[in-house]
C-alpha cells in the first residue's frame, strides 16, 4: 500500500508540477483516513489512496462507518491491483489447489489457515474460498502478515493467503511453496503459479485494487486534471515495473469503469461477509 502510494505520488508530483505529501493516517482498517478525506475541503488538495477494504469490505463489516463509499467520494482513477498468493510450508504434501481442498476435507475443519488480520481482503478471500469449495478451514488470526508468515514457514500453520511482496522473499528462497494466485490472471512476479480459477474454480477472482479518490463536491475540472496526471503516471513503464516488483500490475480504466468496479465489489464482498457472518463491532 505504502509503496504503491509513494511510487505513484512521486510521478504525479512531476506531472502536476507541485509536490504531493503522503500523509499516513492509520487506524480502524483505513476508515480514519477515508473519513478524514471525506470531510476535507473539496478543493482537490486532499485526496485519498483508497483500496478494496475502504470501499467494498468496511461497509459490510462495520455497522457504523463515518463515510459512505459511494456518496462521500468522487473516483479519480484506478491505479493498480495486486492478487494474494496461496502459500504452504516448503515440506508440505500440498502441491496444488486440489491437494489443498482434499486435505481440508479430510481434516474436517481443522486445516489451519493463517489470517494476517481480520477484516482484510486476505481474510475474506479465505471465506470466499470456503463458500466456493464447500470446505471449512480453522482460521488463525494474526496481527499483521509478518508473524503469520513465520508460523507458515515454521510449519505450524498449513497455509496462508498472503500478499505477494510479503511472501516473495521466502518463496524465492524455498521456505514457502506458492500453489495459486487469487486473481483472474497470473501475477507478472510469479508467472509459473497458476490462478485458483485455472485449477478448477472458474470465475474465482479476489485481489486488492488501489485507486485515488477526491471528496464529493470537488469541481469537475480539478478531477479531470488529477485523473489526467494519475493516468499518465501509471502509463509510465518505469512505474509499471515498480508495481510489478510489488506483485501487482497497473490497471488502466476509465472513471466509469472504476465506478462500476466499486459497485460490483461492494456487492460481491458484501455477499461474502453476509454468508460468512463476519463482523467487526
Amino acid at each position: 500500500m505504502d509503496v504503491v502510494t509513494r511510487v505513484v505520488a512521486e510521478r504525479m508530483s512531476e506531472e502536476l508540477g507541485q509536490p504531493i505529501v503522503v500523509e499516513n493516517k492509520p487506524g480502524a482498517a483505513g476508515s480514519i483516513a477515508a473519513e478524514y478525506v471525506a470531510q476535507s475541503e473539496p478543493d482537490g488538495y486532499v485526496i485519498l489512496m483508497g483500496q478494496t477494504s475502504h470501499f467494498a469490505i468496511n461497509p459490510g463489516l462495520y455497522s457504523t462507518l463515518p463515510y459512505d463509499p459511494i456518496e462521500s467520494f468522487i473516483p479519480i482513477s484506478l491505479l493498480a491491483d495486486a492478487p494474494n498468493v496461496v502459500v504452504v510450508p516448503a515440506n508440505s504434501p500440498i502441491k496444488n489447489m486440489a491437494d489443498l481442498i482434499d486435505a481440508a476435507r479430510k481434516a474436517d475443519g481443522s486445516l489451519t489457515l493463517a489470517v494476517s488480520s481480520n477484516g482484510t481482503v486476505s481474510h475474506l478471500t479465505g471465506e470466499l474460498l470456503e463458500t466456493t469449495t464447500g470446505v471449512t478451514f480453522n482460521h488463525i488470526p494474526y496481527k499483521g502478515a509478518a508473524p503469520a508468515i513465520v508460523d507458515v514457514v515454521g510449519g505450524r500453520i498449513d497455509f496462508m493467503l498472503s500478499s505477494i511482496p510479503t511472501a516473495l522473499g521466502q518463496i524465492r528462497a524455498g521456505g514457502l511453496r506458492p500453489i495459486a494466485v487469487s486473481a483472474d490472471k497470473r501475477s507478472p512476479t510469479l508467472p509459473d503459479v497458476p490462478t485458483i480459477a485455472e485449477q478448477g474454480y472458474p470465475g474465482f477472482n479476489a485481489g486488492t485494487w488501489y485507486g485515488l479518490f477526491a471528496p464529493a463536491g470537488t469541481d469537475a475540472a480539478i478531477i479531470d486534471t488529477l485523473t489526467d496526471a494519475a493516468q499518465k503516471a501509471i502509463a509510465d513503464p518505469e512505474i509499471r515495473a515498480k508495481l510489478q516488483d510489488e506483485g501487482g500490475d497497473t490497471l488502466i480504466a476509465t472513471r466509469d469503469e472504476f465506478r462500476a468496479k466499486i459497485k460490483a465489489d461492494l456487492e460481491k464482498w458484501g455477499e461474502v461477509i453476509r454468508i460468512s457472518g463476519a463482523t467487526v463491532n
Binding site: D2, V3, R6, P165, G169, R172, G174, K242, D245, E246
Partner: peptide
Amino acid sequence: VGALIIQGIQPGPSV
C-alpha cells in the same frame, strides 16, 4: 523493508 522494495530489493534469505 518498504524502502528496500522501492529500491527493487526483495528482503529475504537471498539477500
